[in-house]
Design a binder for these strands. Structure first.
Lengths: 206, 206
DNA sequence: TAGATTGTTAATCGATTAACAATC
DNA sequence: TAGATTGTTAATCGATTAACAATC
């Protein structure tokens, strides 16, 4: 066995490291250390080194990490050394904002299909893409081989749509709907419910 | 010492439990068990019981938890047995969507102020609120006593705006900008960068 | 009552940190 | 070289799970 299972919690930190590294690169820096990177992202230097060491030896004693090289390696590790097509379902305000979001382009993703079930929205053009009828969603996603979807429908519809996405072959769902989804093994969900984010902080406010 | 420090990781799960309980309540259920709730949210029954036991004894042997009662208790624990005013900064597509989002109303939050620095947006009315000039943000938030903000500005402006928010007395920031923020102790940040969410899943896709 | 389920304890498991030899 | 910083090991710390007496 050449590679034992990497803990999920380590995987979940890698995108944060990558984001920080690209920020540093944007500032013209060539090199960083586990110390500096850790301070930037709020993680101990030891943890940075431990996390990265799961995948190889990317640094040099005495000098630290070459930023461009580490970015390249992290892109490969996280499988974003390519462009993933993403389908967006639900063209309400949030779906709209996501469809027009400019931040995906240089981070490994491309919004490739938009869906809604509302006849008033079907056919609408958003950022060069025409909103398609959800009724054609499953075959369309299947045929395009899309594996990632962003779910922006109301909570009441979210589980049913998620089921369809799974049926269409989607393996990763970014869920904006305020509801826990049940999906089969092998399908991943990340949650972005803004109320949950807020409620995680109010405990600490008097 | 009557109450030792509750781990952050437990606090972070409570909103998920609450959301599931409200879902069950909406389905007309009166009672649930740690088993059932755990299955719904993807957490072990033992963990549900352990988490809740940090705050009191809310269940009954043999019958489980009264849903309405547990919801009430969780609301109190999480300090959302009130309505928190929230300021939204940055009225791009995302800020717009957030300002118009209907999901905060019954979850303890109210969007109370909107800000942007773009003259083209200042004065615009969104959902009954007029977009104010960011230049007046610090005194306005201070005077209103707002403690929670949602940050929807571009990454390049996010840290500077966060500094202003801190200066204005904000203690909790929900950050949509794709950048790690540095804030003083006592200020909390939750991150909702969609690319991070997607990148946390691509590792598992071949 | 009998069955179900809690709250809690102890055991296990996993993640983080501290420390340091290796080495650039 | 001397100073800095890595990758890794062992120790510590914390979180999760299993099990069960208590009891509704």
């Amino acid at each position: 066995m050449t590679q034992s299972k990497i803990p999920d919690i380590i995987i979940s930190r890698l995108p944060i490291y990558l984001r920080a590294l690209r920020h540093m690169q944007g500032q013209g820096k060539q090199t960083t250390s586990s110390q500096e990177l850790g301070e930037w992202v709020g993680v101990s230097a030891a943890q940075i080194r431990k996390d990265l060491s799961q995948f190889g030896e990317f640094g040099k004693q005495g000098t630290g990490y070459n930023i461009a090289f580490l970015i390249k390696k992290l892109n490969e590790i996280m499988h974003i050394d390519r462009v993933w097509d993403v389908a967006v379902v639900g063209m309400g305000d949030m779906g709209h904002a996501i469809a027009r979001y400019q931040g995906f382009a240089d981070r490994g993703f491309r919004v490739a299909m938009l869906f809604d079930s509302d006849p008033a929205k079907i056919g609408e053009e958003i950022d060069g893409f025409v909103v398609r009828d959800s009724a054609q969603m499953v075959p369309a996603i299947q045929q395009a081989g899309i594996r990632i979807a962003m779910l922006c429908v109301p909570a009441s519809a979210a589980q049913a749509v998620a089921n369809q996405l799974v049926q269409a072959g989607v393996k990763a769902i970014l869920n904006y709907a305020p509801i826990s989804l049940t999906v089969p093994p092998g399908v991943r969900v990340q949650y972005l419910d803004p109320s949950i984010g807020l409620q995680r902080m109010t405990y600490y406010l008097e």
